[in-house]
Amino acid sequence: MLRAMPYGNDGIFTPEDFVSKLNYDLANDLGNLLNRTVAMINKYEDGVIPALNSGATEFDADLVQTANDVIKAYNENMQAMRTADALAEVWKLISRANKYIDETTPWTLAKDEAQADKLASVMAHLAAALRVAAILLQPALTRAPKQIFHQLGLAESNLQIADLKFEDLPAGGKVVAKGEPIFPRVDVEAEVAYIRDEMTGGAAKPAEETEASYIEVPTKDLIEFDDFDKVEMRVAEILEVTEVEKSNKLLRFKLNDGTKEGRTILSGIKKWYPEYAGLVGKKVAFVANLKPRKMMGEMSEGMLLSAEKDGNVILTILPDEIEAGSELG
């Protein structure tokens, strides 16, 4: 909920957005990162966190720099009471750590004994990223940071934010033999119904007593399959999100669309995503063969797909496992 309350503006809370953040930000992004890291340290390092030695892979420096930048920005935002912005910074590190796994492919390194040192370095960097994220999340999450430390075999006495440094990861910690999800995914429909019932003080009727209700869905003229087949929809990873100067609606998305050049798409969803920094690292769907058009003096090379109902707009976020550039159909 803190992430939905930008500094100086009203927060917008909906049960749907709450459950989405639980399933995607917490379960998929943070929870999955912890589960994968613990499982790989058990599999490749006999459950022991290796010593942190940066520079073993070409991706180490960027992860370390991201962590240091996040720590600095987090402290500045918290000092300015910009809690939502501070938390968005933490998710930059979490997204970067998930990407680091895809870049370093530990499962490939494990097949070559000559890459043992490099594999150990990858495991240490992932543990270090989780340690930093857990420490920074303490003001917002009261139990999860301690659970993360427990699964990593780190002492709770080290949950200190003062003088936090990425490289201060204690070596030799023994991770738990089998990690348990700290953020289990929830059933969207059931959870949303429960929250709505709580918001109305239990006034809502039980599902079995509620008459089915339907909405009028406006439809356009039917088209032939050949017309639909002309639309090319693909998957992209969000690399950067920035505001478009002099626009109170547009955000500029730098995307990895699977090509060497990438592409830029402008989208008028700023109103619904005041914490747009948290979108970095997400996989989204977009129309790839839409003719580029100029918006506010800049070219937009496609269109991001989103869902809209009752004035609320939500981007179509796809699972992390789908590769950028994949075609949808």
Rank of each mutant, 00 (worst) to 15 (best):
E180P: 11
A193K: 10
V175A: 09
V176L: 07
G202V: 06
A193C: 04
E191H: 04
K174Q: 13
G202W: 11
P181V: 07
E211F: 10
K174Y: 06
E191Q: 08
I195E: 01
R185P: 00
E211D: 08
T210F: 14
K174L: 04
G172S: 03
I195Q: 00
G173W: 02
M199K: 13
A203N: 12
V188N: 04
E191P: 01
D163N: 15
A171K: 14
E208G: 08
E191M: 03
E208I: 11
R196G: 09
N158L: 14
D168P: 09
F183Y: 11
G202P: 11
M199I: 10
N158C: 13
A177E: 09
E209C: 02
T200K: 09
V176W: 08
T210P: 01
E189D: 14
E209R: 08
T210M: 11
K165M: 07
E156Q: 15
D187P: 00
G172F: 01
L169G: 10
L164C: 06
A177Q: 11
G179W: 00
F183T: 02
E216K: 13
L169T: 01
G173Q: 06
E216I: 07
P206M: 13
G201V: 04
P206I: 12
Y194Q: 10
K178T: 14
E156W: 13
L169W: 05
P170D: 08
V192L: 02
A162Y: 00
G172V: 10
Y214I: 14
Y194V: 10
F166H: 09
S157N: 14
F183A: 00
A204Q: 13
V188T: 11
F166S: 09
E189R: 04
P170M: 09
P184E: 04
D197C: 02
E209F: 02
T210S: 15
G173V: 01
I215F: 03
E189G: 00
D168W: 08
E167F: 08
A193V: 03
I195G: 00
P170L: 03
K205S: 14
V176Y: 03
D187T: 01
K205Y: 06
K174I: 11
V175R: 02
K178Y: 06
P170N: 07
V217C: 09
E208F: 11
E209A: 11
V175E: 05
N158K: 13
L159P: 12
A162H: 07
K174T: 08
A171F: 05
D197M: 09
G179T: 15
A212P: 13
V175M: 03
S157H: 03
E180Q: 08
P184T: 03
Y194M: 05
Y194R: 02
A190T: 10
Y194K: 10
E211V: 10
G173F: 01
E180T: 09
E189I: 03
P206S: 06
E180W: 07
A207R: 12
I182P: 01
A177Y: 05
I182S: 00
A193R: 10
I161Y: 12
V176R: 05
